[in-house]
């Protein structure tokens, strides 16, 4: 009961103080707003990138062609070596014959053409289809396979995918940098807002100390004030996030450029992101005000 009364009082005081220092409060709130918009975009972008890289990664295969002259035993040896590579998660082996049958099933034209060849003269080769655990290292795995005896050609994703992935990673890094810088500026502003509140109430705080208010009672209104700033600051980012992402998603019908790049569907994604944005806002407000309180209140 007592605690509720004290917290009720703190919340009342905090709101009063936000209004009393309106211009500085507004500056803090705007700063939090800008920061959170960028945080939200960064979160949504990186979650989407993660989503489609995993989608793409699922499809990434190394295709290994063996020399035409390879015997069955030699093929076995290659298989053994591929099996023992670290990064290989699974593989399938198809002989020339199987490849031929598969292709013939796929199309009439292939059927006609391939019927003209027997095993000896076939242009087709024995192949391995290898899947890797870590797409980042697909290149070196492919190299290792290429260096094996009897292996003639190795192909994987045409280089497009790993370029895309590395572009995404560098974009992500830049975004993190910007977010961290913005969070720091925001913290600085919040600390100054709360500092002003504290100095406006110095006398009151002195009297509170004299009459035996605990540190908790003295600190709480300021920390709640910081949280309120954070909360107000997250309103616009949440609205932008929610409607912006839905519009974006609907505009592209859920895909970017090709069926390969699939966007995360808005529900429950936008709610999760909104919650994270609100959480970050409140947390930044809280950390900022705690910092100010510790520094300027000596409690």
């Amino acid at each position: 009961m007592k605690l509720f009364r004290m917290i009720g009082r703190s919340i009342r005081d905090a709101f009063k103080s936000v209004i009393r220092n309106f211009s500085l409060s507004l500056a803090s709130i705007s700063c939090i707003t800008i920061t959170l918009i960028i945080v939200a975009i960064a979160i949504m972008a990186s979650l989407n990138v993660k989503n489609f890289t995993t989608e793409i990664e699922k499809d990434m295969t190394i295709v290994v062609f063996l020399d035409s002259s390879t015997t069955e035993e030699e093929a076995k040896e290659v298989e053994e070596k591929i099996k023992n590579l670290d990064n290989v998660s699974e593989y399938t082996y198809q002989t020339k014959k199987e490849v031929k049958e598969m292709m013939q099933e796929e199309s009439e034209v292939f059927k006609e053409v391939l019927d003209n060849f027997d095993d000896e003269s076939s242009p087709l080769k024995d192949t391995f289809q290898v899947k890797v655990e870590e797409v980042l290292f697909i290149k070196s795995t492919a190299k290792q396979i290429e260096n094996m005896d009897h292996v003639s050609v190795v192909r994987y994703g045409e280089g497009m995918v790993d370029k895309m992935v590395s572009a995404f990673t560098s974009i992500e890094k830049v975004t993190y940098g910007v977010v961290i810088a913005l969070v720091l500026v925001t913290l600085f502003l919040i600390i100054n807002t709360i500092k002003l509140t504290i100095s406006a109430r110095k006398k009151e705080i002195g009297i509170m100390r004299l009459v035996g208010a605990s540190n908790f009672t003295i600190k709480t209104p300021f920390i709640i004030e910081g949280m309120i700033l954070g909360m107000f600051g997250s309103i616009i980012p949440i609205i932008i996030t929610t409607y912006g992402y839905m519009a974006f998603y609907n505009h592209f019908d859920g895909y970017l450029y090709s069926e390969l790049i699939k966007l995360v569907s808005p529900e429950p994604f936008i709610y999760q992101v909104s919650l994270i944005v609100l959480g970050v806002g409140i947390l930044v407000g809280m950390i900022g005000s705690s910092g100010a309180v510790r520094k300027y209140l000596k409690v």
Binding site: K2, R5, M6, R9, I207, M208, V211, G212, A213, T217
Partner: peptide
């Protein structure tokens, strides 16, 4: 009253 409010009295 301020003194008592700080102590959370009714």
């Amino acid at each position: 009253a301020f003194a008592l409010e700080c102590l959370g009295e009714k």
